[in-house]
Write a protein that binds this DNA or RNA. Structure first.
Length: 606
DNA sequence: CGTACACCTG
DNA sequence: CAGGTGTACG
């Protein structure tokens, strides 16, 4: 139906850069140790000895890699710092002045200066005591995390489990390849299939499933070949050491800030950005080839991710998080996150939250449900704060963006939108389990545009056909603007306009052919064909009440086209320009509700 | 040179 | 809807 090829909203964009590398093991680039063997094929039952030996070797190498990686000096690899760091974008905003060029006569749509940032000042209440308590919890969690990782490793050391793991990986590949897999479905499927669970969910996450394995894994350490034993001991040591170092480092770095500005401490945590995107792609909505599923084994990725997270945590480049785009070399670290794995964790909800922050994973599936020991949580459609609803989006602590301001979602305002479902309280806070102070510190800024943003943009088109980038920034507060994001949004509106003008012109010509004489009769009403076409495009679900003003604009556009064509102006190559100019002045203000960060989310649901 | 835009194309 | 291209600015 649509004039463009349907079926691929390609919402993200920012970095086509990371696509290639997805297919190979992230660990390889990030870590220095070479891997002795390529991922071994499934061992045949027969030559078990040899194979398991190789297996061990490989594993050992990987473990060493992990360790190596962890010890690596916090290399600056968090996404790029190349010239185009996010910081520069604000420069664009000076352009508030409408450019009255010929090309695009812009309407001086004065932005209510009120739109000025209202910083959500973290309540001064964040006392040190509180912060301390939180830190303690975090540390505790980290420890658990570490233990988990160790156990996981031992588990993998066990040949049986190794095969198991691989199998899981393969399954995962299939899952990845399956288009149209929606989050809900994925998590549901995962829940029903142990193997998938094994892969998709954070290791320990499936606390229910894995708990036994953990013990088993730990117990098996004794039965391991001496070689492996040594290895395990070494690993334990290293891990322990690394953890304490990291913890110390983090604390040292963060504590000062913490005292004055509690949320700040997340600033030093890098964000791996690929996860979300992969999620989105996985949903089958992108026409670009899905990023190749991970070809490395679980251990490797665990190591990579872990190392990255850790090193990143102690490195505290304020810019480290700002990698809107490209920078291939540095990207790898991020790519690690694109693999669907999650580090295991046994800790309850709050910790999941933390980890997600640490690793920057876009969480899909539902940690919440598993951490609650209730697999049905996700299925029964009572989304945990972090799950499905937020699943496809890239999460990030807005604190990391000094420019952005934490803005509590406003269900109230969302509700006032003429949208179908009422705002869900659930999406208001990311984390219920978390103690108040901490949860207050977590706000999420998406780094990529999502389908919900698209939808929102379309609705906004009813009000503005020529939004300035400034305006866009004002209305898409929940996205981290980068050059790419901005361009993409601009492009969207450009596409909207294109469609709009094409439609109007079509109907104008049609009217002409039908012998319409009086321009005045050309009115776009809610039941006119033209309106239907437009509404279908920008408001598919018809869940938004199109403002009357838009009808007027459409009418005027129609009339303009009509007269122009009738006057034979369409011979002039640029005969539309005058029309564009006129229309560009008809933008109206966009309702404040669209500023609500919850708005996008709500839109997605309808 | 970078941005924004229209136009064309897939 | 995204890419690509050519144009028109500042």
């Amino acid at each position: 139906m649509d004039w463009w090829q349907q079926g691929c909203s390609h919402v993200t964009e920012e970095c086509s850069v990371c696509q290639g590398p997805h297919s190979h093991a992230p660990g390889d680039e990030a870590l220095t140790l070479p891997r002795p063997c390529a991922p071994t094929p499934m061992p045949c039952a027969s030559d078990g000895d040899q194979l398991s030996n190789e297996h061990l070797q490989a594993k050992r190498a990987r473990v060493e890699s992990i360790i190596q990686g962890m010890n690596l000096p916090l290399n600056p690899l968090t996404c790029d710092t190349s010239g185009e760091r996010g910081g520069g974008y604000d420069m664009e905003r000076g352009r508030e002045t409408p450019r009255e060029n010929k090309r695009k006569p812009r309407v001086p749509r004065q932005q209510q200066s009120d739109g000025e940032v209202r910083r959500a000042v973290p309540s001064a209440c964040s006392s040190q005591a509180q912060g301390c308590q939180q830190l303690k919890e975090q540390l505790h969690f980290l420890e658990q995390q570490l233990r988990q990782l160790q156990e996981k490793f031992f588990q993998v050391c066990n040949p049986g489990d190794a095969a198991h793991a691989q199998e899981g990986t393969e399954k995962a590949h299939l899952l990845h390849g399956k288009p149209g897999g929606r989050l809900g479905k994925d998590s549901a499927t995962a829940a029903s299939d142990p193997l998938k669970v094994h892969f998709w969910r954070s290791v320990p996450e499936a606390a229910g499933h894995e708990a036994p394995e953990e013990e088993e894994g730990a117990g098996d350490a004794g039965s391991l070949p001496s070689e492996a034993r040594v290895l395990s001991e070494t690993l334990k040591h290293e891990l322990a050491g690394v953890t304490s170092r990291v913890v110390d480092s983090v604390l040292k770095t963060v504590w000062p800030k913490l005292a004055s500005h509690l949320p700040q401490w997340h600033c030093s945590l890098p964000v791996l950005r690929e996860g979300a995107r992969r999620e989105y792609f996985a949903s089958g909505k992108c026409r670009k080839p899905l990023p190749k599923p991970p070809h490395q084994d679980v251990l490797n990725s665990l190591g990579g991710a872990q190392a990255e997270a850790l090193s990143g945590a102690s490195e505290k480049s304020p810019d480290s998080h700002t990698c809107p785009i490209s920078s291939r070399g540095v990207r790898k670290a991020c790519q690690v996150a694109s693999i669907g794995y999650r580090l295991g964790m046994t800790a309850p909800g709050q910790d999941n939250q933390l980890l997600s922050q640490l690793l920057g994973y876009g969480q899909h599936g539902s940690w919440g449900s598993s951490s609650h020991g209730s697999p049905s949580a996700a299925e029964r459609g009572s989304p945990e704060p972090l799950d499905l609803h937020w699943g496809t989006i890239k999460l990030r602590s807005s604190v990391m963006r000094q420019q952005q301001y934490p803005r509590p979602l406003s269900p109230a305002s969302v509700g006032s939108l003429v949208l179908l479902p009422a705002a869900r309280a659930g999406c208001r806070e990311p984390q219920p389990m978390m103690d108040g102070a901490l949860s207050l510190t977590l706000r999420y800024i998406q780094e990529a545009l999502t389908p919900s943003h698209l939808k929102k943009a379309k609705l906004m088109f009813f009000f503005t056909r020529y939004p300035s980038s400034t305006l866009l920034k004002t209305y898409f507060l929940d996205v981290q603007f980068s050059r790419c994001i901005t361009s993409q949004l601009i492009k969207w509106f450009s596409n909207f306009r294109e469609f709009y003008y094409i439609q109007v012109e079509k109907f104008a010509r049609q009217a002409l052919l039908e012998g319409v004489a009086d321009t005045k009769v050309l009115r776009v009403s809610r039941d006119s064909e033209l309106f239907r076409a437009l509404n279908m495009h920008y408001n598919k679900g018809n869940d938004f009440e199109v403002p009357a003003r838009f009808l007027e604009v459409a009418s005027l556009t129609l009339q303009e086209f009509f007269s122009a064509v009738r006057a034979g102006k369409d011979c002039d190559p640029s005969w539309k320009k005058p029309i564009y100019k006129i229309i560009s002045k008809l933008d109206s203000d966009i309702p404040e509700v669209f500023k609500s960060s919850g708005c996008s989310q709500e839109l997605l649901r309808s």
